[in-house]
Design a protein around this nucleic acid. Structure first.
Lengths: 334, 334
DNA sequence: TATTTTAATGTAAACGTTTTCATCATGGTT
DNA sequence: AACCATGATGAAAACGTTTACATTAAAATA
């Protein structure tokens, strides 16, 4: 049987209330008594029962991380960032992802209603009405990771996809002197994708380059679709000099097609991606892309959430909207 | 305020005991009463307070996944496998990793003592005395993921690293006709590494090839060390025809050095790895390696653990030691 | 019919903690 | 000397469940 505050109380000859107070720093209790209790707790190797504590305080030091998927380095880095902060602040990280069998909403509801988590980090590429409605019904501390802060009333952290894409395309035009730049986008509803495309369009516009709509193809962040799109781009009579793919996975598809068609990168076709995933540095030539600080994203989200959980009483109603900047990674593919 | 069994009891005109019994399928309660209770619960959108439940039953449906690190696709796949099973069985996945600030042992102790998890999946590359001692003090259901089942008393799941390596080296000898095969190992204490090296040695032995000790170098699973080791191998007067690296990361280092030295893979030097990480398929030439079913590993571990948690009363003392087989992936690097 | 068994339900304790309220010294203020 | 504020502590309730035990009514057995 594990040691409880009762055991300590008995041994110390005080009430359990005094033990509890001694254990929870902030309370007024005579220094002497406190030290006695603390030393006995130490001696008996006392570990507070978190379940009991959370149960009575209605606060859980478990953070629920809801993601659209659990796959690849993006989510791994996110988890790592969250875990890093959680650990150092005495919190636990609980992960869940959407599934064929479970929607994002279901995950959230589950977490919210069962009293199991003390706060939620919600990472979602898009926010639909169902999610909005669900969020409205909770008063759990919440941080949203999403590019588009459609929900102004919630704290959010996002990557500056727009600027990342803008800078990259601007670099292609200004430094590399490309004028014919195609784009393979990401999924339609995906806010990351939407903002990257915007950055692309604005960079062209600002440089006085006319937009060629036939050079903008819809991808879906997969290598497969990258292949399909790049193939049709490279077979055009008036084909582009460069392809800006909405993410590295898509760009990898372009690499493969270019190689298959016997084209040299970047001489015959320049390729740029977005994300700077692990693979990208090993491709030859090294991919030009945009580094996104996912680890930091996770860290920041967790930090913000913990802060929110702990100051909830004070209820500082200030809403934060953080935007993390990306970094251009210049390789030899352009 | 959330609905509790008291609310249901009041509305249904029964005691909370009856409500509880109705909710927990297995109990004897009149069909009629049960239906009434259930319909009211539905109506009031009752969600049991998991904290309260776990607190009183001393059973948690949270599974603690303890890993040596949280980085890269290996752990991502592991988490995914665990999450997959956990979700479908109504469990939650809590992750933690070792740190500069936290040892594996501390993570375990933390999980064990705070009453927060109902079982632990412990993934560790090696088991030291401290871990052994710690495990002895718990009666929490536990599954160990580790190559070497030093701890026969605990259920374990592991990858058949030995056979994977043996088959690969055997393939290099029998099919590819290499006779001079070097090996860059992994960390000393790492059981995966140890078994892979054993497989390598035995394959050579069984094929009547004498072992050249100067061709066996100590790596540490990093690309950096792969570079260092392969450079010294390739600069030898009597240099090997092939290098079997203990994992793909190391093999990638070999690729880079070979390229730097102007050597063609596989003509000048053949390279093989282990793990079949995501990158490997994109290298040119495609790496020959060994695919390890990490996702399945996670799944199996979770399945076993859940089974253990749920049959604990019955206490079937049978200990399971599962070994998952790997699969040779033939690329063009050999 | 009297007694025993069984089924259905209620009562209340228990889990380990926090926290409100009450109690009781102690020492300072009039 | 009487009073009051204060600081330290204890008693007990509360949180939402499950569950051992008690109770009741109905059914089965004698």
């Amino acid at each position: 049987m594990a040691t409880t505050i009762k055991d300590i109380a008995k041994r110390a000859g005080v009430s359990i209330a005094t033990v509890s107070r001694s254990l929870n720093e902030d309370e007024k209790v005579k220094e002497e008594t406190k030290n006695l209790v603390l030393s006995i707790a130490e001696e008996l190797d006392y570990k507070p029962n978190l379940l009991a504590r959370s149960f009575v305080t209605k606060k859980s030091n478990i953070i629920g991380l809801v993601m659209p998927d659990i796959f690849g380095e993006f989510f791994m880095e996110l988890i790592r960032g969250v875990d890093d902060v959680c650990f150092s602040k005495g919190y636990y990280t609980m992960v869940t992802s959407s599934h064929s069998k479970r929607s994002t909403v279901e995950s959230i509801i589950d977490y919210m209603s069962k009293g199991i988590v003390g706060g939620i980090i919600l990472m979602t590429p898009s926010i639909n009405d169902e999610i909005k409605k669900t969020l409205k019904n909770t008063q759990l501390p919440l941080i949203i990771i999403n590019s588009k802060s459609e929900l102004e009333q919630y704290d959010s952290i996002s990557l500056d996809n727009y600027k990342g894409a803008y800078d990259l395309v601007n670099f292609l035009i200004k430094t590399k002197k490309y004028k014919k730049i195609a784009h393979i986008s990401g999924p339609k509803e995906n806010n990351d994708s939407i903002n990257r495309e915007k950055g692309y369009l604005d960079a062209l516009k600002d440089n006085g380059i006319e937009i060629n709509k036939s050079w903008i193809l819809r991808g879906d962040f997969t290598t497969e679709q990258g292949k399909i799109c790049s193939e049709s781009l490279l077979k055009m009579k008036n084909r582009p000099q460069a392809i800006f793919a909405s993410n590295d996975m898509t760009a990898i598809g372009c690499y493969q097609i270019a190689r298959n068609m016997g084209m040299k990168i970047p001489d015959d076709i320049a390729i740029a991606g977005f994300d700077d995933i692990f693979v990208s540095q090993f491709l030859s030539p090294r991919m030009t892309t945009v580094k996104v600080p996912i680890f930091d994203l996770g860290k920041k989200a967790a930090e913000l959430l913990v802060k929110k959980i702990e100051t909830e009483k004070v209820n500082s109603k200030k809403i934060h909207h953080l935007k993390l900047s990306t970094k251009l990674v210049v390789g030899e593919s352009c």
